[in-house]
Design a protein around this nucleic acid. Structure first.
Lengths: 213, 213
DNA sequence: ATGGGTCTGTGCTTGATTGCACAAATGGGA
DNA sequence: TCCCATTTGTGCAATCAAGCACAGACCCAT
């Protein structure tokens, strides 16, 4: 009973590894593999095989003793667990250089996400086209998000506007925010809103600690 | 003695939080503050104050009882610890959409990093200008990196070429890699090479797990 | 049909990380 | 001057995460 698949007390750190496993499985599929093992996955990812088995066992037994895991089946199951077996509409806020890059990035579509609308505060940018979408004014954020039932957003505005944008988004019903602005967002008022961060400098600074001179 | 500042057995997870603290301190400075406390920082970052105090205490006593931390002083000390009190030259590999966005991003310079050169395999892109730099051919990676003493690189090439690029970089003497390609890199042959990843989809997938329908 | 090699799922141990709680230090106001 | 409110740095306890190691299951070759 320790690994009841319906158990919803799964550590967040485990959830965080599942997308990594999924990415590695995509890769194996592209390489033409059909079966893999916790040992092979672990070697590729630099993670112990025991950890991979234990992580996966939280959601049920997806493998077969003596054989390993059917890649296609495991991918399907992980997509179900992560709820990326569907396509999520995403709102993009900010149509500057960064917003343009995100809007034109081709890597979202086949992994469960579709940029559905884009907003900017600058009147000169409104009406322009980014990744096939027309830039809308900020005033339309709430109505658009509500009408289209969007739950996921990405913030690509300057740091000083990110908190205000966050509050607009949360009020509009957004439940998951990926923040590209180099600033911490306060969503402590809402315990059902999730925030993740993209800040390349954080990662670089983390590595320079270990470098010599 | 438990918190000997010269101790180099500091957990990686602690190092990973220091850039977050530094970013929050930058922000406080911009807001005109001069002094802060572990409690205030913790509230802003959603971290317990005890953890912040303990993390900082690994490197010495930077605060004053009853008062808190002088922001400018703590920023300086954290920059020293992370070695971002200097400017690191960074090689950028890949001059496609993503490489262009990175090359034009203004957020690196004032946080310790300077893109010093950019490379691409596509002959049509060679000689073009990205962020004020001329795109060089891949064949020049090793000589350029060696001559200029570059230790940090960012990979912005398609996933299928990322591993080969990694090996070229490591052979050229690169010690820290920030990988934007959605694939895991194998650097297990070299234990002095650090890798960090930027993959927005990973963060999105991690959040959708918690969303309803 | 059977034996040997392989691999999963998991109980238990070990190790790492976080949080509590308090002594000591500080500064400002009465 | 002295007291009170505040805040740091840290020993200790509690919680959380990772890894070992093995029973049971599976496949394949003979």
């Amino acid at each position: 009973m320790a690994s009841n698949p319906a158990n919803n007390n799964i550590p967040d750190i485990v959830i965080g590894r599942l997308p990594v496993y999924l990415r590695a499985l995509n890769r194996l599929t592209q390489e033409g593999e059909e079966v893999t093992s916790s040992h092979e996955l672990g070697r590729r990812l630099g993670i112990s095989s025991a950890q991979i088995r234990k992580d996966l066992s939280h959601f049920g037994g997806f493998g077969k003793q003596g054989t390993g895991y059917q890649i296609a089946y495991l991918e399907e199951k992980l997509r179900q667990v992560l709820q990326v077996d569907r396509e999520w509409k995403v709102a993009l806020i900010g149509a500057g250089d960064l917003g343009n890059a995100i809007g034109n990035y081709r890597g979202f579509t086949d992994r469960g996400f579709h940029i559905a609308c884009i907003f900017d505060a600058d009147e000169e940018k409104i009406g322009a086209t980014v990744g096939g979408l027309t830039v809308q004014p900020m005033a339309e954020i709430e109505s658009t998000i509500r009408e289209r039932g969007i739950q996921v957003a990405m913030i690509a505005v300057p740091a000083e506007h990110a908190q205000a944008v966050t509050e607009t988004l949360v009020d509009a019903g957004i439940k998951a925010i990926l923040n590209y602005a180099p600033i911490n967002l306060d969503v402590s008022k809402r315990d059902d809103v999730h925030v993740q961060y993209i800040d390349p400098v954080l990662h670089l600074q983390r590595m320079t600690y270990y470098l010599k001179g």
